[in-house]
Design a protein around this nucleic acid. Structure first.
Lengths: 218, 218
DNA sequence: TAGATTGTTAATCGATTAACAATC
DNA sequence: TAGATTGTTAATCGATTAACAATC
């Protein structure tokens, strides 16, 4: 998952933009282009060109060239490496219901360096089955299996009410990072990384932006 | 969707935290509590107490009382009103596959003031069916139906390759806000609000946080 | 009253943007 | 060479946090 030297100093904001750069650069590469300017990237992605240059400078091993811009292939390699997409990390998924299925089926997490090695659920209908080849185990097995599999990342896609319990089971088994799709606040020690995928927050921001746009029109 | 007077001046960061406050406050209310201090909220939600007070001050109609704190019921009402959860807005969903199903089934968007009135897909197997009572129409109908239904919000849950086309069809029909779950950059006019649900970005941030934690340990 | 908690002003922090010299 | 584009330094902007007087 990236290189130790790079862990520090790169801002969260920058890290959050890297996947978008990567997607964009891959598109350009596919379209047969070899180099690209920060100005072009900025325009297409609706960012500021200085910001783009700063972001790239932080993670890139090769400098851009005046007049030419950046080597697309180099940037792609650098971002892949920085984000750790080269080497895959194991993860488990808890909650094999609708959202769990969608997550496994949809995202192609492998591309993001994530390999889901096991899923868990409480439903007897699901236990023993597989989703896209991933075996589903009983939720009661979480701690034991996570420990045995030595997994550090857990994805929570269970109903709100079960989220905390699941989080506790995961961390008891040694999980150190939790990607939480349940709209519940998790109470966990500070040395566990948590990323809440808060749909309500996203929607709130979108709604307000819409209200603003409509308001400015009249 | 909230009140016009309130559209301005509340920062995106604050808006993004409001749903978490709301969930938390509802929990407390359910637990039978009547008042709460910013200190307590901050501690439980791992925020700064001043930040909590500022956030609440921005959207609340009632002040907190020294020594007592805030009336939980008042805060809940204020946040609900501010976020527009009182009055429902119509939306359409494009992409009735795994993720689309999960989104409709899972979130209970109604709670967030969103009413999905129609879904669209290209698959003949899905067209004519319903998801949780929401009828699925042919994707070719997007523009026409969105216009007729007068819908302002569109949710995109289609594969990457189809996302731009869908976005264009939605905006052609009059949609002004797009919630994009496809990991594709959308090119749209500035007067269309777009919120990208970028899983890759979230995961990148989580991964780096994990790497940081592990690194600091050794 | 004494002390917990508020609301506000000022200081800090971090991220974005503007200005500009360097250079291919 | 001339001009597009880079990388960097300084200025600005926005959000968080610290300090503190007001008050129930």
């Amino acid at each position: 998952m990236g290189n130790n030297k790079e862990i520090t100093n790169v801002s969260k904001a920058t890290i959050g933009r890297l996947p978008a750069y990567l997607r964009y650069l891959k598109e350009k590469e596919l379209a047969g282009e070899r180099t690209i300017s920060s100005t072009a990237i900025a325009e297409d992605l609706k960012l500021n060109a200085v910001q783009v240059r700063k972001d790239l400078a932080e993670i890139s091993t090769v400098a851009g060239k005046p007049k030419l811009g950046f080597e697309i292939a180099d940037l792609i390699a650098d971002i892949n490496r920085f984000l750790g997409y080269d080497n895959v990390t194991d993860a488990v998924l808890v909650g094999a219901g609708g959202l769990g299925h969608a997550l496994v089926g949809y995202g192609g997490f492998k591309n993001y360096g994530l390999n889901i090695v096991a899923a868990f659920d409480v439903s007897p209908d699901l236990i023993g089955k597989t989703i896209k080849g991933v075996p589903i185990f009983a939720a009661s097995e979480i701690t034991r299996l996570v420990r045995r599999l030595n997994v550090l990342i857990g994805i929570i896609a269970v109903p709100k009410a079960a989220a905390q319990e699941v989080a506790d089971a995961l961390t008891a088994g040694g999980v150190r990072a939790i990607w939480n799709f349940a709209s519940a606040h998790l109470n966990l020690p500070d040395d566990i990384a948590v990323k809440n995928e808060d749909m309500a927050a996203s929607l709130a921001i979108l709604s307000k932006r819409l209200a603003e746009i409509l308001y400015n029109e009249k």
